[in-house]
């Protein structure tokens, strides 16, 4: 039961959705045969059901956060005061969001409407923190790249050269540097060259990668539908 039912669910749901691509689905009414109606219903609603499950996975994540940080606080483990900060910020945002504090009277309007406390938290706390944390990566990505790619091989040099051209060419610096070039070298201007790299060799590489990924997805999907995949939800782990 632990392994068989998940496999059956994957096979049935996956097959139904694949079939929706090959069967003409009735648009409305109950006169159509059962199977086309079932396929139409699956096609219309399974993505919504998936989104509903995603909401429960957020809730699961929240519950897990309370559990792990709550344990840390209860057992006074190292750095437990930080866990208190996490729990308090989690609880505050959850309450003002679910109760739609501020904004339109009652529960009317969207929770993200201007004037709600939730929108204010986004502007004052979540937005700045997210943008700053991601901007920190600029420093770490560049230092990691320097350590990894510095002229160790021809391939690494090509990668670094392409990245440098893109970085210079897609900024105003590219135009300034490009203006120093003579007319007959226009095609080597950083702004022109960066556009060419993005349009031609990058397109070729991306297409090959996409082809590889798509074949991988198809193979993995078929393995899952046919119950050949032993790992994950249908396996022993």
């Amino acid at each position: 039961m632990k392994r068989l039912i998940p496999r059956i669910i994957i096979t049935v749901v996956g097959t139904l959705l694949i079939a929706t691509s090959f069967v003409v689905k009735p648009t409305a009414g109950v006169d159509a045969p059962f199977v086309p109606r079932l396929l139409a219903y699956a096609d219309r609603n399974f993505s919504v059901w998936f989104a509903i499950l995603a909401v429960f996975s957020f809730a699961l994540g929240g519950a897990n956060l309370i559990k792990s940080h709550g344990m840390k606080v209860a057992k006074r483990r190292s750095d437990w005061p930080y866990s208190v900060i996490t729990l308090v910020s989690f609880a505050v945002v959850l309450v003002i969001g679910l109760l739609k504090v501020g904004g339109a009277p009652g529960w009317q309007g969207a929770v993200t409407d201007a004037g709600t406390a939730f929108a204010w938290v986004f502007e004052a706390v979540y937005g700045p923190l997210q943008a700053t944390l991601f901007s920190l990566l600029a420093f770490f990505v560049v230092s990691a790249a320097y350590r990894s790619f510095r002229l160790r091989s021809l391939e690494a040099s090509i990668l670094l050269a392409a990245a440098t051209v893109i970085l210079i060419g897609r900024t105003p610096l590219g135009v300034v540097v490009g203006d120093l070039y003579p007319d007959w070298l226009t095609f080597l201007r950083p702004d022109v060259l960066s556009m060419w790299i993005l349009r031609v060799p990058n397109t070729a590489g991306q297409r090959a990668i996409l082809n590889g990924i798509s074949l991988g997805v198809v193979a993995t999907s078929l393995r899952l539908i046919l119950g050949l995949d032993r790992g994950g939800v249908g396996g022993r782990r």
């Binding site: 866990s83 996490t86 910020s89 989690f90 609880a91 945002v93 938290v121 997210q130 944390l133």
Partner: peptide, 29 residues
Amino acid sequence: YKIAEHIFVGVSAAYWMVIGFWTTFWPNV
């Protein structure tokens, strides 16, 4: 930094729960 990091963890977990509740769970369930 640790304070900011822990605020971010708590706020982002609650933020996506609230967004999921009002944009997906409420209208679709």
